[in-house]
Design a protein around this nucleic acid. Structure first.
Lengths: 164, 164
DNA sequence: ACTATAATCGAGAATCGTTCTCGATTCGTT
DNA sequence: AACGAATCGAGAACGATTCTCGATTATAGT
């Protein structure tokens, strides 16, 4: 299933690695080998992942990076605006924030699938509400929970079997 | 600050305790003394709280309920539809779901304040989007993060001081 | 009331994701 | 090559939550 046209990666001037290096330099920190491995691996494919999956993924690819460094680097990449956190379960999931249009999520309560969607009205409503309350809106999270099409199909299949 | 009129508690036929007992009975479980203490204490005031605050609160009121029982009961009350979970920080916060109109939240990233608001458009958008993707929408969470009016005021005060 | 049986309780151990500590290593610069 | 600062990895520590298990309590049947 290809993503909808409005959720294609955006054209960006700098690569994630360049952007990360820049962020680190400003703070007097360094883009080391493990950090370069991480940022490139993460932006090599567009998907949601958590710290454990990342460690396992890297290990499979033959790149050892310690858990400590993975957690530390993820935090940095969030601060750098490269990644965004999603707290849907007890584990924190991450997704690309740099070079990717802003969007929200649907979360299947049965299989855990995460589906992205784009809707500009939400942003508008958010700003109207914030203004009403004198808030300065910085960000928002909109997550629709329910059952994805696959799990709904599986359910109705089960119901039919039960009737026999 | 009184809550907006559209966020007043709703009139409900059954008390939370009755509703809890009913839920438990269906599952062949019992409304015990600790559970009765908890459900009544929780619905005695309308506010957000987490497990630790609840334990401390009860202790102050002279009612000892063990941490285990508090966690177990909170889970049950969520399943019973009495409470709703909010995962804004590392601690899970809870709020009334029974006898209270559905609403969403603004969360101040500076002081942690949680402000409720009601907006019917969100629900409508949610259902339209879910339908587009073949999802069955069961629930949603919409959280606006930013700075609350008080923290904005404190900020501009600080900026003025800096200028002197 | 009394007893039997299953559910529940409390205390503390265990779990699990994440963060911290610290001696060893690497980076960039002289 | 040598230095100081930043970073690394391994494992300890942490904090919220869940689990374990012997003691306690609720409810139905006598």
């Amino acid at each position: 299933m290809t993503p909808p046209a409005d959720l294609e990666p955006l054209q960006v001037k700098e690569s994630p690695e360049e952007k990360f290096r820049e962020f680190l330099e400003i703070r007097g920190e360094k883009l080391t080998e493990p950090r370069r491995v991480l940022v490139n691996h993460i932006f090599n494919s567009h998907k949601h992942f958590d710290a454990d999956e990342l460690v396992a993924d890297l290990r499979e690819a033959g790149r050892r990076v310690s858990r400590s460094t993975v957690y530390r680097s993820l935090r940095l990449m969030v601060e750098a605006g490269l990644l965004r956190e999603l707290r849907l379960t007890n584990r924190t999931a991450y997704e690309h924030n740099y070079g990717y249009p802003s969007h929200d999520h649907m979360h299947c309560s049965e299989c855990g699938a995460i589906v992205e969607f784009r809707n500009d009205e939400i942003r508008r409503i958010r700003d109207v509400i914030a203004q009403q309350f004198g808030f300065r809106a910085e960000n928002h999270k909109f997550v629709i929970t329910g059952q994805c099409p696959d799990c709904l199909k599986a359910r109705s299949r089960r119901r039919k079997l039960d009737q026999i």
